[in-house]
Design a protein around this nucleic acid. Structure first.
Lengths: 70, 70
DNA sequence: TTTTTATGTAAAATACTTTTTACAATATTA
DNA sequence: TAATATTGTAAAAAGTATTTTACATAAAAA
């Protein structure tokens, strides 16, 4: 899963901490997601998309897991 | 978070187990999500949207978190 | 009616997400 | 340069998602 959070955050000239506060999480959470430590929960993904004024699928790019059984 | 999984699953005449297999999860996971026991992870949300041929934000309706303890 | 399929549910285990606290390194500003 | 703001990181704890196994019930099909 790739995301465009840092890119959009910088577009709005927000620090990780400012974005975190707008999304009601800690700056460590934003930092971890920007640095691909883990993916956000679905509701945080929606919240971030809302704050950054994009659709969820514009903020995140899903790269399919290889389904060797389908 | 509301979702339209059951509605779309039935449209395609899939059982929970069939949808589960297409999304590479167990039928208990599909059942729990349909019955609002918890929300899927972001990547499962994308996978389900892909299988059900809709955009993530069409499959899920984000209702701002109710912070029951704030 | 009997068999099979589909759904609901539950507990334990494992994995993942988020918070809290804390320290270090970098970048920016005074 | 010195002070401040920003970012990276880490460990422990708490919360959430998913699997596995298992049983019960309901619905559909034979």
């Amino acid at each position: 899963m790739k995301n465009h959070i840092q890119e959009l955050r910088k577009l709005y000239k927000l620090s990780q901490d400012e974005l975190a506060k707008k999304a009601s999480v800690t700056r460590q959470t934003i930092n971890a997601i920007e640095n691909d430590k883990y993916d956000p929960s679905l509701s945080l993904a929606f919240e971030l998309a809302s704050v950054l004024q994009v659709q969820v699928q514009e903020l995140f790019e899903y790269t399919k897991k290889d389904n060797h059984n389908v």
